[in-house]
């Protein structure tokens, strides 16, 4: 009876406090929420809406065409080329980046290594410099006059200068090399964080048992860092599909669309007059289709990672 009374007395105050607290919390997240909705949440829906119109973006003249843009995209060989290249780029970049960064991280995860910090800074510096500027500089470095041709020639690896970025045969792989060079440091830091979570006594025990360095790595270290490896793989995959800055400044998608990915395709279609009048509606359809594919890939990879962790 008295308990009830207490509850009855306390609950309105409690409830008022609770409501007040909730209001404070929402007020505190509101700024982030507004910026998220305005520049990411709403635009993604908007993109779907625009994709249903024939619209240059220059005027307010929008004609509703339904799924017509999507239908023409399916028959647009330039779009399919860009779509395929996005994934070709991903398939080449992800394994190279993940393996090379793990290699360096493993070598650097040794406290006795002199110059450890110097190596780490050098390998990481490309990550912090502006991608668009690196892309422009790399145009020269990989040009016929650049150091790459000079070095390869003096090592007798090639006998004629190769126009790495200007030749459709080599352009994609060159873009991939530059990307791996640029972003490798990011994943190296991720791997170092993972490797530092491996308890040293476990490694110690393995080496007492007579395991070699590589044996220890594959049978002891790899299983421990596997969960972080999943996150690294997902991040690397998603980031590779987002690539724009380097590709636009290195090749602009050329030569002959050999390095054209969806990001460069959308930019060219919507914001330049390289292919006639800008086409906002059409470019939005391409951006939407690609966005949906990337989101699905992200979700599938995430689910796979969850499954694998459950199994362990």
């Amino acid at each position: 009876m008295s308990q009830h009374a207490i509850k009855a007395v306390r609950s309105p105050i409690q409830r008022r406090n609770r409501i007040k607290l909730n209001l404070w919390c929402w007020a505190f997240v509101s700024l982030t929420l507004i910026f998220y909705l305005l520049f990411q949440g709403y635009p993604i829906l908007c993109s779907i809406y625009y994709s249903l119109f024939n619209w240059s973006g220059m005027t307010s003249n929008m004609a509703y065409v339904g799924l017509e843009n999507y239908r023409s995209l399916l028959n647009d060989s330039v779009f399919w080329g860009a779509f395929k290249n996005s994934f070709r780029y991903m398939i080449m970049v992800v394994p190279l980046e993940v393996v090379i960064s793990l290699f360096f991280a493993y070598l650097l995860n040794d406290e006795k290594l002199k110059l450890r910090t110097a190596y780490r800074v050098s390998l990481f510096v490309p990550v912090v410099v502006t991608a668009s500027i690196v892309g422009i500089v790399m145009v020269f470095i990989w040009s016929s006059n650049g150091i790459i041709n000079y070095a390869m020639k003096s090592m007798n690896l090639i006998d004629k200068n190769i126009n790495w970025l200007g030749n459709a045969k080599y352009a994609m792989q060159t873009v991939v090399y530059v990307s791996v060079w640029k972003d490798m440091g990011t994943y190296m830091i991720y791997w170092l964080a993972a490797l530092q979570s491996v308890p040293t006594d476990v490694i110690e025990a393995a080496s007492v048992d007579g395991a070699t360095r590589s044996r220890t790595f594959f049978s002891v270290v790899v299983p421990i860092i596997a969960p972080t490896a999943g996150i690294i793989l997902i991040l690397c995959t998603i980031n590779s599909l987002k690539a724009f800055d380097l590709i636009q400044t290195l090749t602009g998608g050329g030569p002959f669309y050999a390095t054209d990915v969806i990001a460069t395709f959308v930019y060219r279609t919507a914001f330049t007059s390289d292919m006639g009048l800008p086409r906002f509606g059409y470019a939005s359809a391409a951006a939407t289709m690609f966005g949906i594919v990337v989101i699905i890939i992200g979700a599938v990879l995430n689910a796979l990672k969850g499954k694998l962790q459950d199994l362990q």
């Binding site: 305005l38 520049f39 990411q40 709403y42 635009p43 993604i44 908007c46 993109s47 625009y50 973006g57 998603i238 599909l241 987002k242 724009f244 969806i262 990001a263 959308v266 930019y267 919507a270 914001f271 906002f280 470019a283 939005s284 951006a287 939407t288 690609f290 966005g291 990337v294 989101i295 890939i297 992200g298 979700a299």
Partner: peptide, 14 residues
């Protein structure tokens, strides 16, 4: 997971 390219045109419009 949302690629910038998918929000680029609407952000330009906003």
């Amino acid at each position: 997971c949302i690629p910038l390219v998918s929000t680029l045109i609407p952000v330009y419009q906003i």
